[in-house]
Amino acid sequence: MGIKSFQGARKQQATAETTVAIRVRDFMTRDLITFKPEQSVEEVIQTLIKNKISGGPVVNKNNELVGIISEGDCLKQISESRYYNMPMEHHTVEKRMARNVETIDGNMNVFDAANRFLESKIRRFPIVENGKLVGQISQKDILKAALELKGQNWK
């Protein structure tokens, strides 16, 4: 009886040693392309195309997150400008950005974050610490984490 208990404890210890706790902050992007509320939508479109991204966080002068602007937000502006035959150069990010932005905790487990992506249908979550934008995690970042950790046990 004592031998089985000892072997069970060793097996449990070995499993615990190979288990990897991986956090969002380990895979988030820290060097972000951000936008300002006063920027033109046309400038955002140029930046999205040039950098091959689908959107980005909007921050104020204190680097506090105030919104998100996406390709979809820009498409709405193009569509309305064309429909009303209005030039786009006077339209700002502030008028088009999404203001109610869901954020995610940098200490969250990456696979819990994956579930948040599935539940919300959002493509990117900003990470805010002490009121400041510090990074962003995307669905692609989660996929990279899964490939990097392939074959390991996850917490």
Results as ranks from 00 to 15, higher is better:
D73W: 01
A21V: 13
I69F: 05
D26W: 02
I122N: 10
E43I: 02
S5L: 12
R96P: 01
Q46G: 03
G55Q: 02
R96E: 07
L32Y: 08
V59H: 04
T19G: 05
R123W: 03
D73E: 08
V20I: 15
E148F: 13
F6G: 06
E94L: 09
K11W: 05
M88G: 15
T47V: 15
R82W: 06
Q77D: 09
E38I: 05
N109Y: 04
V66A: 06
D105N: 14
K36L: 08
K132Y: 10
W154E: 00
Q136C: 15
A98S: 12
F117R: 00
P57T: 09
N130L: 08
Q13C: 07
K140M: 12
R96Q: 12
E129I: 08
S79A: 11
A146N: 01
P37G: 14
R116W: 02
N51K: 07
D112A: 15
Q77R: 12
R96H: 05
N60A: 08
N60C: 07
R96V: 00
P57H: 10
A14T: 09
Q7C: 08
G151H: 07
I137H: 00
Q12R: 15
H90G: 12
N51C: 02
K132C: 07
L147T: 14
E148H: 14
V66S: 03
E80Y: 09
S138R: 08
D105P: 01
F35W: 03
G106Q: 02
E129M: 10
N130Q: 14
E80T: 09
R10D: 08
L65E: 02
I122V: 15
I45P: 00
V134G: 03
K11L: 13
V20R: 13
Y83M: 10
E89S: 10
T92M: 04
L143T: 14
A14S: 10
R30H: 10
S79Y: 10
P87I: 04
G135S: 07
M108R: 09
A21K: 08
M108K: 11
T92S: 14
E129V: 14
F27L: 04
L143G: 05
H91Y: 10
R124A: 11
I53G: 03
N107D: 15
E17S: 11
D112N: 12
I22R: 08
F117K: 02
K95F: 07
D73K: 05
L65I: 09
K4S: 13
H90S: 11
M88F: 04
E80L: 14
N60Y: 09
E129T: 13
Q152T: 15
M1W: 06
E129N: 13
I127C: 02
C74I: 04
W154F: 15
C74M: 06
I137C: 00
I3C: 08
K144T: 15
K76M: 07
I104H: 00
T34V: 14
N109R: 07
F111M: 14
G2F: 05
Q152D: 03
R10W: 13
H90K: 09
T29P: 01
S40L: 05
